[in-house]
Design a protein around this nucleic acid. Structure first.
Lengths: 188, 188
DNA sequence: GTCTATAGCGGGATAGAC
DNA sequence: GTCTATCCCGCTATAGAC
């Protein structure tokens, strides 16, 4: 237990993505780690603090991951491939949905600061996808109607929705959507 | 108050779509109607009963609405137009998200019967969209890669995701996704 | 069908000892 | 930093009168 705060976030994140924000409790977290509720409160006094820390860490981590993808894979297609793989891993690790979708579903009850951080997170992903699509179009490797930012919105929404649909209809539903997104972008 | 049970469902549905399942209470419902909590329990003994009734009614109502659309509008394009308008009205009436997305986000904590009914609901919409797209392709008014059921999955997921994204980024985000879906289907 | 009252539990959060 | 103990509240659900 090198960093208890990180350990708490790990467990809370898992619970948020499987059960939703209002459906998990400090008790749930403390049970799984094997420490008392009070200790969690010591590190994150209120649930608003906890949720903000969750989104902030997630955003930082995602920024780093996406930048790594950008550097490692040179073509837009391989970058898209890496991104959809990333999202599919969320689903495969136990029926989770994306943190973004989970919190947006309870948007009206989360703290204002968390809302802001969530918006920043979504905006970053959107920008990253937009850049990817713009590159793909410029290099004539991808086709889509309209501006890249609009197509990015579509893909972002579809992946988020597909993760949720996968809960009711299994992982096949998700891979179908991914396949369809790719087919759609293919220059025919 | 011709039918109290309907009135309760009206309020509960609104709360489910704005606040989420675990984040609304019998007290919330009773406050808004102006009756006691016990009366709600009289009509819907447990929250599981209430959730099941909500999904069942929603499904019945949606089936009727979609069939009406099918009859009223003869072309696939007008049918799609009517459907996306329907979904956008959900959003416009106070930052709601679709009932389906809300419950799927809390899939792990809802009753098994509710899960089943939710799956039926999603399946119906999927079938309806598939038929619409198959017609559109057959009449050479729409184009898309792969089988119509896969394209239906994509559109269904995208609309659900877009409703949630609209909470963080405003209604414009949703209309953008709708426009992009249509542009994608256009025979160029 | 509706009410008041209440049981019983679990939630978030705090105090204070170690 | 972690614990036990506790507060207070709101939750689901029930009992029983009207």
């Amino acid at each position: 237990m090198p960093d208890r705060k990180e350990q708490i976030l790990d467990v809370a994140e898992e619970l948020l993505q499987t059960r939703s924000f209002s459906a998990f409790s400090y008790q749930d977290v403390s049970d799984r780690i094997g420490i008392s509720k009070a200790t969690i409160h010591h590190h994150y006094p209120s649930k608003d603090d906890l949720s903000l820390a969750l989104v902030t860490r997630y955003r930082t981590s995602l920024i780093s991951t996406l930048e790594k993808i950008t550097q490692e894979y040179t073509t837009p297609w391989k970058q898209l491939e890496a991104y959809t793989l990333l999202v599919s891993q969320v689903m495969q690790s136990g029926h989770k949905i994306c943190l973004t979708g989970s919190l947006q579903s309870e948007y009206e009850i989360i703290a204002n600061e968390t809302k802001q951080e969530l918006a920043n997170l979504c905006a970053f992903v959107h920008t990253w996808l937009t850049r990817l699509l713009a590159d793909g179009k410029k290099q004539q490797m991808m086709t889509f109607p309209g501006p890249p930012e609009d197509q990015a919105s579509l893909i972002q929404a579809a992946l988020q929705g597909a993760l949720q649909q996968a809960r009711a209809h299994g992982p096949k539903q998700f891979t179908t959507v991914v396949r369809q997104i790719k087919a759609m972008l293919k220059t025919s």
